[in-house]
Simulated assay, not measured.
Amino acid sequence: MKRNIVIATLTAAALAGGTVAAFAAGDEETATRPATGANVQVVSDRDDDADADADADDATDDRSDDADDRTAVSGSGVTAAEAIAAALRHTPGTAVSAELEDDGAGAGTWGVDVVRGDGAEYDVDVSGTGKVLGAHRDTDDDSDSEDRAELAALKGARFDAREAALGAAAKGTVTEVGADEESGAVAWSVETVKDGRASEWKVALDTGKVTQDHSDDD
């Protein structure tokens, strides 16, 4: 009789232990599965956050560029036409481009490229007050046949860089003007800023007609 009681007790204990182990195993498996799914969701969220941050950075860069343009324009007391005229009085020749510096210590200063009659090219710096700060010769001898063709067209043009800047000034404040060749035709390319928005224009060398430039970025 005692032997039967002992066997029954051991059997019950074994069954109870197996049930506890089974529940323990089930709990461990259940705890593991949700953890894996949570990790996948967190990674996806991080990717979305990274994309959002990249878009925000791009927008910030665009706003920064516009702010630089506005700062440069407000920091210069002379127009593009006036800067070109001052540069040519200092260094006679053909003005092939003029650009307003938009950042750093030189913000508000004009850089005017002038080619003299002997073919020498000079970079003339004009301050925001119209004073010529200096001129230095560009010693880079990398001009090609296209550059020479553009220069020839500019020398024979009825409308020079100063007049192109004056013509485009009706569209906004001119920040840059320079020669541009497209499909064999040379014209003045002019950039303006108005109400914080930058635009590009073409000015014909022979008629001075101003048309909006439709670039590949439009």
Results as ranks from 00 to 15, higher is better:
2 K>V: 02
3 R>M: 01
7 I>G: 05
8 A>H: 07
9 T>G: 10
9 T>C: 07
10 L>T: 04
11 T>Q: 02
12 A>V: 12
13 A>R: 02
15 L>E: 03
16 A>S: 15
20 V>I: 09
21 A>C: 01
24 A>E: 00
24 A>N: 05
27 D>P: 01
29 E>M: 06
33 R>Q: 13
33 R>T: 13
34 P>Y: 09
35 A>Y: 07
35 A>F: 05
36 T>G: 10
37 G>L: 11
46 R>Y: 07
46 R>T: 06
47 D>S: 12
49 D>R: 15
51 D>P: 01
52 A>T: 15
52 A>C: 11
57 D>N: 12
57 D>I: 11
62 D>W: 00
64 S>D: 03
65 D>I: 03
66 D>Y: 00
66 D>K: 10
69 D>Y: 09
73 V>W: 07
73 V>Q: 09
74 S>K: 11
74 S>L: 11
76 S>H: 03
77 G>N: 01
77 G>W: 03
78 V>I: 07
78 V>R: 04
80 A>L: 10
80 A>K: 05
84 I>W: 08
86 A>D: 04
86 A>T: 06
87 A>S: 09
87 A>L: 08
89 R>C: 01
89 R>M: 07
91 T>W: 07
91 T>K: 15
92 P>L: 05
93 G>L: 04
94 T>K: 09
97 S>A: 13
100 L>M: 13
102 D>I: 11
105 A>H: 15
105 A>V: 15
112 V>E: 09
116 R>C: 02
116 R>Y: 00
116 R>P: 01
118 D>G: 03
119 G>D: 03
119 G>F: 00
122 Y>A: 03
122 Y>P: 01
124 V>S: 02
124 V>L: 06
125 D>W: 06
125 D>T: 15
127 S>E: 07
127 S>M: 08
129 T>M: 08
130 G>M: 08
131 K>P: 00
131 K>G: 11
133 L>A: 13
133 L>M: 13
135 A>S: 15
135 A>Y: 12
136 H>P: 00
137 R>M: 10
142 D>E: 12
143 S>P: 00
144 D>L: 11
144 D>A: 10
145 S>P: 08
146 E>K: 14
147 D>R: 14
147 D>Q: 12
148 R>Y: 14
148 R>G: 14
149 A>Q: 15
150 E>D: 15
151 L>N: 14
153 A>V: 14
154 L>D: 13
156 G>I: 12
157 A>E: 06
159 F>V: 14
161 A>T: 05
162 R>K: 14
163 E>Y: 01
165 A>M: 08
166 L>V: 11
166 L>C: 00
167 G>A: 12
172 G>W: 01
173 T>M: 03
174 V>E: 04
174 V>C: 02
176 E>T: 09
177 V>F: 00
179 A>I: 03
179 A>T: 11
179 A>Q: 11
180 D>F: 13
181 E>T: 15
185 A>S: 14
186 V>A: 09
186 V>L: 11
188 W>V: 01
191 E>Q: 14
192 T>F: 06
193 V>H: 02
196 G>T: 04
198 A>K: 14
200 E>T: 10
200 E>G: 10
201 W>D: 05
202 K>Q: 06
202 K>H: 06
207 T>M: 12
208 G>A: 06
208 G>S: 04
208 G>V: 02
209 K>I: 02
211 T>V: 10
211 T>Q: 08
217 D>I: 06
